[in-house]
């Protein structure tokens, strides 16, 4: 992290469990404005749970959990989202009975601090595929198109940080390329991204640095190569 920048999101000593099955052990990480950070780890390592715990969607405890210097521990998920923290879940969770345009409407929130807000038109420029199907019900879309819609829907909330859970999973290589373009576009807009990933290739293409998560613990942090190497041990 560059010196002097205030971190956007600070997570310190995060523990989480589903029932009595513990999933996260003392996870700590930081993300500064405009950064793209990868959270690497295999299936079941606790990546999704980390993101959900930050958003208050799973019961978790942390020594410190702040966003924009404000504690978000115990806040309702919608309050956290309104502070500018967006989430694109692994399962995408598109509203399949709604049209593309309606899905975007659900995500719409006013932009904070006078930034130009995202509009469907701006998003359609970013994801040209979506423009052609704005009136279509989302259950008639392919997996890649749904993934783009999920990102677009989150951007409609004008977040300053997006938690992006396994965006490349289950997608054809050509779609994965578009996904990488989308992440780079977000970075250009000044949006920070915390990206959970299993495959180094995608993470390497878009992220500035990485954390490595294994069995619910942060095992490494630093460059992507270093983290990949450490995770293999």
């Amino acid at each position: 992290m560059s010196a002097g920048t205030t971190p956007l999101l600070v997570v310190e000593g995060l523990d989480a469990a589903y029932g009595r099955a513990r999933v996260l052990f003392d996870v700590s990480l930081e993300i500064a404005a405009g950064e793209v950070v990868a959270l690497m780890g295999r299936n079941g390592a606790g990546k999704s749970t980390t993101l959900k715990a930050v958003l208050g969607l799973v019961p978790a405890k942390a020594r410190r959990l702040t966003f924009l210097d404000r504690s978000i521990a115990g806040l309702a998920p919608h309050r956290i989202a309104r502070l500018g923290l967006g989430w694109v879940p692994e399962e995408r969770r598109i509203f399949t009975e709604l049209t593309v345009a309606e899905n975007l409407e659900v995500g719409r929130r006013p932009a904070p601090d006078g930034r130009a807000p995202w509009t469907p038109e701006r998003l359609f420029a970013l994801f040209p595929n979506l423009a052609e199907m704005r009136g279509r019900r989302a259950d008639a879309m392919s997996g890649g198109e749904q993934q783009m819609l999920a990102i677009a829907r989150t951007l409609m909330g004008n977040p300053s940080l997006v938690l992006l859970d396994e965006p490349s999973e289950g997608l054809a290589p050509v779609i994965v390329e578009q996904m990488a373009d989308a992440v780079r576009a977000m970075k250009q807009e000044g949006i920070a991204v915390l990206l959970s990933e299993q495959t180094a290739a995608f993470a390497a293409a878009v992220s500035d640095r990485a954390y490595g998560l294994a069995r619910g613990e942060i095992r490494a942090s630093g460059t992507l190569d270093a983290v990949s190497a450490a995770l293999a041990v």
């Binding site: 295999r42 299993q198 495959t199 180094a200 990949s228 995770l231 293999a232 041990v233």
Partner: peptide, 11 residues
């Protein structure tokens, strides 16, 4: 597997 998985497997 990828590189990571292959390494874990080898170990």
């Amino acid at each position: 597997l990828g590189e990571t998985g292959a390494r874990t497997a080898a170990q």
